[in-house]
């Protein structure tokens, strides 16, 4: 710890702390809850069970992905065509199962195409952020010295920007498209990935097998690729789900402020923003996309919890 800043240690305490929670997150684990909090890594049979919640989470995410990928072949109305009266309530008319929006476009179609935008942006951003952040973290944790010092300062700098302000500032100078959004959001995923990878590598780098590899004359590149990166992949994969959940909310927030995916392309945040002024008369405009976002985030968090317990890793929050 001596060469690290105390702030880094404070934040890594915050990073490390949710690890205790991984075992307590799912309510049906009641019997093992107390024990798993304390002994973190105890892998009980109950801890490995996926459970009803896990099945529902996988089911919802699967449905969402299939719907988003096959959207143009599904029997849906065009998302930008007026198909009926404005403000038809959900479940009132079965040709528009979720009703219509404020100007009469099919809500289900907009929800599905909105899911496509949300998923592309958040999956792309999470993958990019984790790849870049993970690699930087591995190198910083292995090489230490000035590399680590520089990486620490840069990661702290990124963390000092409140996420939304950073995105807004970027949005003020770069016009939003799917790609710029994904790149901007990826920037949010980098610092936590760096910390996570660094923390995992720092402990792995002192293990005997790394020493053996070095003593056998392995080059640094080989040590990183063959010995260290396999240690970092499982926690990063688990973190990817938490990250995607946070990024979906971040993308929704941006669209909500009118700085996300530009209309007429639908997005969940955009649907919520468009409907919020009709809250009194048509609560469904807001609550249908809110519910979709909530279910998706809940499913992703549940997946992260399940994977976290399986892999016994730390999770973090963006």
């Amino acid at each position: 710890m001596s060469d690290q800043s105390t702030m880094a240690s404070a934040v890594s305490a915050a990073l490390a702390a949710p690890a205790d929670l991984a075992g307590t997150a799912v309510p049906d684990d009641s019997a093992g809850a107390a024990a798993s909090v304390v002994t973190k890594g105890r892998r009980t049979r109950a801890g490995r069970r996926i459970g009803v919640g896990g099945c529902l989470a996988v089911g919802w995410l699967g449905l969402l992905v299939v719907a988003a990928v096959t959207a143009q072949w599904l029997p849906l109305d065009d998302y930008d065509t007026l198909v009926g009266d404005p403000g038809v309530a959900p479940f009132a008319d079965w040709s528009h199962p979720l009703g219509t929006d404020g100007i009469g476009r099919d809500a289900l179609s907009r929800l599905v195409y909105g899911a496509r935008a949300s998923l592309v942006v958040s999956v792309g951003a999470a993958a990019l952020g984790l790849l870049v952040g993970g690699l930087i973290g591995v190198l910083a944790g292995y090489l230490r010295g000035w590399v680590e010092a520089v990486v620490d300062v840069l990661a702290n700098t990124l963390l000092a920007f409140p996420p939304l302000i950073m995105l807004l500032a970027l949005a003020s100078v770069v016009s939003p498209t799917l790609w710029t959004l994904a790149a901007g959001l990826a920037l949010l995923a980098v610092p936590p990935s760096v910390r996570l990878a660094k923390a995992n590598v720092a402990s792995a780098a002192r293990r005997e097998y790394v020493l053996v590899a070095e003593a056998l004359g392995a080059r640094r590149r080989r040590v990183v690729a063959r010995e260290l990166i396999p240690n970092v992949v499982p926690p990063l994969v688990s973190f990817a789900f938490v990250g995607m959940a946070a990024l979906i909310v971040a993308e929704g927030s941006l669209s909500f402020l009118g700085l996300g995916i530009p209309p007429p392309s639908p997005s969940w945040g955009g649907m919520i923003a468009a409907g919020k002024d009709d809250l009194a008369d048509h609560p469904a405009f807001v609550f249908v996309p809110c519910a979709a976002m909530f279910l998706t985030v809940l499913a992703l968090n549940t997946m992260a919890d399940l994977l976290g317990r399986r892999l016994d890793v730390r999770e973090s929050m963006l």
């Binding site: 919520i272 809940l298 968090n301």
Partner: peptide, 20 residues
């Protein structure tokens, strides 16, 4: 168990959805 389920659910609601 009730609190654990509730925190799990609340954690997944974006703050603007809560506000709405």
């Amino acid at each position: 168990r009730v609190v654990s389920a509730l925190t799990s659910a609340t954690l997944s609601i974006p703050s603007f959805a809560v506000a709405l």
